[in-house]
Write a protein that binds this DNA or RNA. Sequence first.
RNA 1: GAAGGAGACCAGAUGAUCGCUCUUCGCUGCCAGGCGGGGGGAGGAAAGUCCGGGCUCCGCAGAGCAGGGUGCUGGAUAACGUCCAGUGGGGGCGACCCUAAGGAAAGUGCCACAGAAAACAAACCGCCAGGUCCAUGCACGGAACGGAUGAUCGCCGUGCACCGUGCCUGGUAAGGGUGAAACGGUGCGGUAAGAGCGCACCAGUCCCGAUGGUGACACCGGGACUCGGUAAACCCCACUCGGAGCAAGACCAAAUAGGGAGGUGUUCCCAUUUUCGACCUGCCGCGGAAGCGUGGUGGGAUGAGGUGGGAGGCAGGUUGCUCGCCUGAAGCCUCCGGGUUCGGUCGCUUGAGGCAGUCGGCAACGCCUGUCCCAGAUGAAUGAUCAUCGCCGUUCUGAAGUUCGGACGGAACAGAACCCGGCUUACGGUCCCCUUCGUCC
RNA 2: GGCCCUAUCGUCUAGCGGUCCAGGAUAUCGGCCUCUCACGCCGAAGACACGGGUUCGAGUCCCGUUGGGGCUA
Length: 119
Amino acid sequence: MGDQRLQSMERLRCPRAYRRVFQQGKKLLSPLFVLYILPTSQPHSRLGLAVSKRIGSAVVRNRVKRRLREVFRRHKDLLNPYCDVVVVARSAAANAPASVYTEQFCRLLRGRQCGKQEA
RNA sequence: GAAGGAGACCAGAUGAUCGCUCUUCGCUGCCAGGCGGGGGGAGGAAAGUCCGGGCUCCGCAGAGCAGGGUGCUGGAUAACGUCCAGUGGGGGCGACCCUAAGGAAAGUGCCACAGAAAACAAACCGCCAGGUCCAUGCACGGAACGGAUGAUCGCCGUGCACCGUGCCUGGUAAGGGUGAAACGGUGCGGUAAGAGCGCACCAGUCCCGAUGGUGACACCGGGACUCGGUAAACCCCACUCGGAGCAAGACCAAAUAGGGAGGUGUUCCCAUUUUCGACCUGCCGCGGAAGCGUGGUGGGAUGAGGUGGGAGGCAGGUUGCUCGCCUGAAGCCUCCGGGUUCGGUCGCUUGAGGCAGUCGGCAACGCCUGUCCCAGAUGAAUGAUCAUCGCCGUUCUGAAGUUCGGACGGAACAGAACCCGGCUUACGGUCCCCUUCGUCC
RNA sequence: GGCCCUAUCGUCUAGCGGUCCAGGAUAUCGGCCUCUCACGCCGAAGACACGGGUUCGAGUCCCGUUGGGGCUA
């Protein structure tokens, strides 16, 4: 098991980085969220979050962001070459329990690995 | 037990593992930073942004008009549209609750439908008196007319009386199905009919005086009266209001780019000047016969410049308008490193602060003493998982007659963004007190 | 975060506190016309965001919620 911390340098912080990932990254879909993923030259992976006001109130939005951050923290070693990831929450994420987050996140990343090996 | 009313309080707890953020200490590292230990880490509403302040900036914030806000009294407060205590009014059987509650006798406007009439009070119907017209009765008189004739009667004229109807004049405001609201209400007297016209009781308005209260006001006595409502319609009166907002504002580094600050500067007028130019003139020197020329010096008036003052114009700012005030300009001079974007730092949490206590005050609150430091993120921290305990609900079986045990489920509203004081809205529960009703003792 | 505006049938909109009070257009439905559809004609149903207050009476005036929309780096 690798490093499970999540420091501030491991987060996307400026609009330019977000725009780069949205335009050039690969798009992966799940019922709870949309994943944009783009390989990076940084020595670590970076996470960005996008939770719109349509998801719910400020309490709901904060909870969704915390859960997504927690999932990324625990499973970021699945990103084998370091990548920038932007997670856009969908409206179903408001009422889902935390275990579903982990299961879907891992399935998306593993499916990507398989597709890469086949290619 | 049911239905309510008022107030206070809490916002599950503990532990383990993995994390986030701030701070502090130690070690390490040239620096950036890294490692380890300690401490802190969402709310009663953090929300809505409806008020009020602090703080910061703005060409100082001035006057008048306009505009906004507030509106019983006294107090609290940094301030408030907030709070406390009271007064008046309204609601409720009651505990208690609500109350933008100044002025309608300063003026203007409005009051649909219905109704005689919607605001100065009058017009209409009705009632009463008088006059007049017509009809009737009685009395007197007349003889033209009618019934075959006479009497009688009918007929005609005059006078009187009274009923009815219409008209005119006058008196009335008691009554008039309406309406949210109709010029006090009831009774007696009074009158041609009536009327506060008079009297008694009641209701209300205004004024004066006495008492109590700081005051709103209460209560008592006297006098004048009987007067619509609406100001969350315009308005009047009193008080009050500069604007923008931490994305305010200050600073640093890099890139790009060539800027910023101060002064002068436009038109006119006045004063002053050891400035300058040309003009007029007096005196002196030189030249000339003379007009005159030339040099020096004094005076006058004028123009340009400098300095000081005043007035005006252009563009803009000052919430709107007028005044006032302020700023700016093409160019020139002087001085300086500054401006914009992105990033970072500060602002940034020690404050009208919390807690405890004494004292003053009915209270809101204030004074004093002691003690504590209690979130500061910025693509935006305060979380995830597990265990135990505690609370509530459902169900099960066993003991048992309302407790224990097992299983399952639930735990509201909601997330700081400069900071406070309020208001409003959302919402789970606990405790205490009070009211009404029912039942039992 | 801060500062503002606004709300009327499904949609776009009128509306001077009162019998024009909820009007108009379009969409919907039914009928007529046509061989049928369209156009046209006739008719119907359909709204004052919510809760209080002022007033005799609120869509309108005042207060508070809720929902939309805009500006600002």
